[in-house]
Structures are given as structure tokens and as C-alpha cells.
Simulated scan of single mutants.
Amino acid sequence: MGIGGCITLIAVGAILTFATDWELDSVNLDLVGVIMMVVGIIGTAVMTSIARRRRAVVTPVAPTVVDRDDRF
């Protein structure tokens, strides 16, 4: 699941929690929406930390140059 999927979870969870007034006997849609939003937020945090680790720039080590003057 990428960042787009996490944002979709947050959006669908918010819609279920705040924008619907459906009543089901066996499912609390408000709780399902809150759970989806929490999972989306955690997923977004994890995905951004993974992306940050992948983009780490490692500076190359400069080669050591030895200048010898071998005149005897």
C-alpha cells in the first residue's frame, strides 16, 4: 500500500465517520471510519519514513592523491 492508498483510507474513513447517517444493526460505521483514518495516518507515516530512508544521499569519498617527486 502506497501513500495514495493511505490517503484514500483517510478520505473514506472521514466520509464514513462524518458524512454518512446510515444505521446498520451489526456494524458501527463511525467506528469503522475512525479505524480507517487511524490506519491511513499510520500508513502515511510509515511510507514517508521509508521514502526518506531511500532518498538518503551518501557523499562519495574523495580519492587520496599522493604527489611524489622521486628525483635523486
Rank of each mutant, 00 (worst) to 15 (best):
M1Y: 09
M1E: 12
G2V: 01
I3D: 04
I3C: 03
I3H: 00
G4H: 08
G4Q: 05
G4E: 09
G5F: 05
G5M: 01
C6P: 04
C6H: 10
I7M: 09
I7S: 05
I7G: 08
T8N: 04
L9V: 10
L9P: 00
I10P: 01
I10R: 10
I10Q: 04
A11N: 07
A11I: 12
V12A: 05
V12T: 06
V12C: 06
G13N: 01
A14N: 03
A14D: 09
A14F: 00
A14I: 10
A14C: 12
L16C: 02
L16Q: 01
T17E: 15
T17V: 00
F18D: 04
F18V: 07
A19C: 13
A19H: 02
A19E: 12
T20S: 12
D21E: 14
D21V: 11
D21T: 13
D21F: 09
D21P: 05
W22H: 10
W22D: 08
E23P: 04
E23V: 14
L24G: 07
L24P: 05
L24V: 01
L24M: 07
D25H: 11
S26K: 12
V27G: 07
V27A: 10
V27K: 04
V27P: 08
N28G: 01
N28Q: 02
L29W: 05
L29T: 03
L29A: 08
D30W: 11
D30E: 15
D30P: 08
L31A: 13
L31T: 10
V32Y: 01
V32C: 04
G33R: 09
G33C: 06
V34H: 06
I35D: 03
I35P: 00
I35Q: 01
M36S: 08
M37D: 02
M37E: 05
V38F: 02
V38R: 02
V39C: 14
V39T: 12
V39N: 05
G40E: 04
G40S: 04
G40I: 03
I41F: 02
I41N: 09
I42D: 00
I42Y: 02
I42T: 10
I42W: 03
I42H: 08
I42A: 14
G43W: 00
G43P: 06
T44A: 13
T44V: 09
T44S: 12
A45C: 11
A45M: 12
V46F: 09
V46D: 05
V46E: 09
V46W: 10
T48F: 11
T48H: 11
S49V: 15
I50K: 10
I50G: 02
A51V: 14
R52S: 15
R52L: 15
R53K: 15
R53T: 13
R54C: 14
R54T: 14
A56S: 15
V57N: 05
V57Y: 04
V57W: 00
V57I: 12
V58P: 03
V58H: 01
V58A: 12
P60H: 06
P60F: 06
P60C: 02
V61F: 02
V61L: 08
V61E: 06
A62I: 00
A62M: 00
P63E: 01
P63I: 00
T64P: 04
T64W: 10
T64Y: 07
T64Q: 12
V65R: 07
V66R: 12
V66G: 04
V66H: 10
R68H: 12
D69G: 12
D69Y: 11
D70S: 13
D70P: 02
D70K: 11
D70H: 09
R71V: 15
R71G: 11
R71F: 11
F72E: 15
F72R: 14
